[in-house]
Design a protein around this nucleic acid. Structure first.
Length: 668
DNA sequence: TAGAGATTAGTTTTT
DNA sequence: CTAATCTCTA
């Protein structure tokens, strides 16, 4: 990919006179532009450490780092590439918070809690045992934080009982986090903002820190992130923002296209450059995508074009149910691969929700096709890793009660509900952490001697590791921890052989990862512990790119491209998703479909099911409205054209009804 | 206190 | 029809 830049790309790279918005259509080479601009800035003499490039995901940050390293490395400036601050919004927020933790009212070892840690806390605050209720309250709190709404304002604006309950919990939520010396993901953005708001010196420090800020995917920024951006860029606005309003798919996380529109208001000198040449897809894929997205109102006028050939028609295939769809897709994929002598890695299967991967995994396994699933459960979400991370968090920060609770009960060491309830009671009365309460005289009086002994042993281990954490390498400490708590033995005794082996392997991977990271930049255990919360996968996992079919959600596929794409489950209720339809947000779903389509370079295969298993029973499906919005002349229907024949549908549903009745009768 | 069975609820996307 | 949670017994 060392073609020369085209005219608008060149303009975007060279323009340094003021704030710049680059409207980069799908496949228009935006990552190239950002990397080239970083290189250009360095060439012109900008100190690499005074350049910040901010992305939305770790994956994008990594790619940016690689691209910049390649460009600058070619000029013998590999050192410069390393010095550029390339990070996600959240890791940048973490860097700020770490540097300013005293001013922000946090101790250096503060913990980062993820939503799973927070759920029980919120459940308690809203006084519910219903997990769904707790999650929805959590969801609301996060929404308020990202929109920079205070607990008071949230309470004042609450419309129904649920919202009022969530708003009340919101205030207590902040207190709970403060007591644990902890922050959540949203705080990584919001707390630096609060700090900048009340401490002009801190603001000045960070505002003067970067000569140029580059932002990827601005259309995905929420109110808090946008404001953080403004803080960093200052009034001069020396930034390059890159984005595409047609690819805004994070509205559900508070991202708002208003930010894109506001950019022009907040920075009247804003220059806009459009990248409209697509280097990725065939004309037919692009025409279909354009035709689809034309159904959305336009913020900016943009016309994508391609110099690639026409390419094949997009195939639309119905399947009788989800299993049949998976088999069909896998068969077609194999036939296609054979015919084109391609690699497995040339193919991606994209879907709306994580759970949809299941039948495809089964079908791929049945045919012995290698595959990788991305965007599913993250490596650091596995129970065994969370167990160990709880220990690390506790080592870094003994106020972290959630970490204490997890670590002290895993592996089982004879400490159960009753003992913990007593400890919590003592801690509550004394207004101190669970960890501190272990040594309180009240606890000694109340608890069983054996349980207390175990607990003191546990605390001694944690304290010992803490004492040594500043000096000794993180990998060694973790390795020692795993050995001392007898974690391997516990795995073997608690799980069957296969599972224990898999878990044991991922523990070994984790120890190795931490050791490597610790050595790389001489990071301490504390720094690494905070980093883990933001890392979603084991780095290096994807580098040894095996020749495998890629399974991914549409969200996780953004920014990627594949020669051949299968877009599956194109049904009403799935894409567009039911919730989105009900919320009146079909536009975002359409953009999601647009993102999926524009991942394809040479061919796109679309499929949907006529029925689908849901909670055991089969239900009828209707093909997605988006299929009708594609350029019909570029489609080829493998089955009957849309919509499905009414007669057949009625017959199918009649058969289903009969089956259901039979099942009912059989039960009695 | 901890593990094994019974019961019941579930469906979106992620830093 | 799963998968996770809850309840009961050793």
């Amino acid at each position: 990919m060392s073609f020369p830049l085209n005219a608008p790309q060149r303009e975007a790279v060279r323009y340094l006179d003021g704030p710049l918005l680059v409207l980069a259509g799908a496949g228009s080479g935006k990552t190239r532009v950002i990397a080239a601009k970083v290189a250009h800035l360095v060439e012109r003499g900008t100190d690499p450490a005074r350049i910040a490039a901010i992305t939305f995901t770790n994956k994008a940050a990594r790619e940016m780092r690689e691209r910049a390293a390649k460009l600058l490395g070619g000029q013998g400036r590999a050192d410069a590439a390393r010095a550029v601050q390339i990070s996600t919004f959240h890791s940048l927020g973490l860097a700020i918070l770490r540097a300013e933790c005293r001013a922000a009212g946090l101790r250096p070892g503060f913990s980062i809690l993820d939503p799973a840690d927070l759920e029980p806390i919120v459940a308690e605050l809203v006084a519910t045992a219903d997990r769904a209720k707790a999650r929805s309250a959590q969801w609301r709190i996060s929404g308020w934080k990202n929109a920079l709404v205070t607990p008071q304002a949230a309470l004042a604006g609450a419309k129904d009982a649920d919202e009022r309950a969530a708003a009340r919990a919101y205030a207590g939520y902040a207190d709970a986090l403060a007591a644990y010396q902890a922050v959540d993901f949203d705080d990584l953005i919001v707390r630096p903002l609060e700090l900048f708001g009340r401490d002009p010196d801190a603001l000045a420090r960070w505002q003067g820190r970067y000569d140029h800020v580059l932002v990827d995917e601005v259309q995905d920024t929420n109110a808090a992130q946008y404001r953080l951006l403004r803080c960093l860029c200052g009034e001069r606005g020396r930034f390059t923002a890159v984005g595409d309003d047609d690819q805004s798919i994070y509205g559900w996380r508070g991202a708002t296209l208003d930010n894109l529109a506001r950019l022009a208001e907040d920075y009247p000198a804003l220059k806009v450059v459009k990248l409209e040449q697509n280097y990725r897809s065939t004309v037919r894929i692009l025409r279909s995508a354009n035709s689809l997205i034309a159904n959305n109102p336009k913020l900016f006028d943009k016309r994508l074009w391609s110099e690639h050939g026409h390419g094949d028609a997009l195939r639309v295939t119905p399947a009788s149910d989800d299993e049949a769809e998976a088999e069909l897709v896998v068969h077609r994929l194999l036939a296609h691969r054979f015919e084109h002598r391609g690699r497995y890695a040339d193919y991606a299967i994209l879907y709306r929700g994580n759970h949809q991967s299941r039948p495809f995994e089964t079908a791929l396994r049945a045919q012995n096709v290698p595959y990788v699933v991305s965007g599913g459960q993250s490596y650091f979400d596995r129970a065994e890793i969370r167990d160990l991370v709880a220990y690390l968090r506790l080592v870094a920060n003994d106020d972290d009660d959630p970490a204490f609770l997890r670590a002290v009960t895993t592996p089982k060491r004879g400490i159960g509900q009753t003992t913990l309830a007593k400890l919590a009671d003592v801690a509550g009365r004394r207004r101190e952490s669970l960890f501190a309460a272990v040594f309180a005289p009240e606890f000694a009086a109340a608890a069983h001697a054996k349980a207390r002994e175990e607990m003191e042993k546990f605390c001694a281990l944690v304290s010992d590791l803490r004492r040594r954490s500043e000096r000794e390498p993180a990998g060694r400490l973790l390795g020692e921890l795993v050995a001392k708590i007898g974690y391997e033995d516990w795995l073997v005794s608690s799980f069957d052989k296969r599972e224990a082996q898999a878990k044991s392997q991922s523990v070994a991977d984790f120890v190795g990862w931490l050791a490597r990271k610790g050595e790389e930049d001489r990071r301490t255990l504390l720094e690494l512990t905070q980093m883990i919360a933001l890392v979603t996968m084991l780095e290096g996992r994807e580098e040894d790119d095996p020749d495998a079919v890629r399974l991914s959600t549409l969200h996780a596929a953004k920014g990627l491209e594949f020669p051949h794409v299968f877009l599956v489950g194109l049904e009403e209720g799935l894409l567009p998703h039911r919730e989105a339809i009900d919320a009146g947000n079909v536009e975002e779903e359409r953009r999601l479909m647009y993102v999926g389509l524009t991942r394809a370079q040479r061919s796109a295969h679309l499929s949907y099911c006529r029925t689908r298993k849901r909670a055991g029973a089969k239900v009828d499906c209707v093909p997605s409205r988006f299929l009708k919005e594609l350029a019909q002349e570029d489609l080829r229907y493998a089955g009957e054209p849309l919509p499905a024949g009414e007669a057949e549908r009625a017959k199918a549903s009649g058969m289903e009804r009969l089956k259901q009745l039979k099942a009912l009768v059989a039960k009695d």
